[in-house]
């Protein structure tokens, strides 16, 4: 798994991944998702993740603006294209794949 090239030609580093984790309060799966995401971020030595956490019980409108009704749910806004991962993120490999998928090279 290689780091993505920057889309521009400046040769600078790829901007760090930007994600939103939608949780439903401290319900079991939501708790697990927070922990799993933390672990995934920490295990990635190259990138510093921009993580935002939205509690749908508190901020319904933000969840709706992203069409999120199932929780927990991780929305990867960057790298593009945006992708949605539902679940408590117990399958770390699936999350890593999604975070580093490169539409240019992957078939």
């Amino acid at each position: 798994m290689t780091l993505r090239d920057a889309s521009d030609t400046t040769g600078s580093r790829t901007p760090s991944p930007r994600v939103i984790l939608f949780v439903a309060g401290s319900e079991r799966n939501s708790r697990m998702a927070r922990e799993n995401l933390k672990r995934i971020c920490e295990s990635d030595l190259h990138d510093k993740y921009q993580v935002r956490i939205v509690d749908v019980l508190v901020d319904v409108e933000t969840a709706l603006s992203h069409n999120v009704l199932l929780t927990p749910c991780l929305l990867i806004q960057f790298p593009e294209p945006a992708i949605m991962i539902v679940g408590n993120l117990s399958d770390a490999a699936a999350v890593q794949d999604a975070l580093h998928s490169d539409p240019e090279t992957s078939e």
Partner: peptide, 24 residues
Amino acid sequence: IQAVDTPITVIRSGEFDVQGLLAM
């Protein structure tokens, strides 16, 4: 009217539920 676009492709990773729906 609350219209919700359900995503065409979703990756599943572990358990999830309809809490967000209920909150909405």
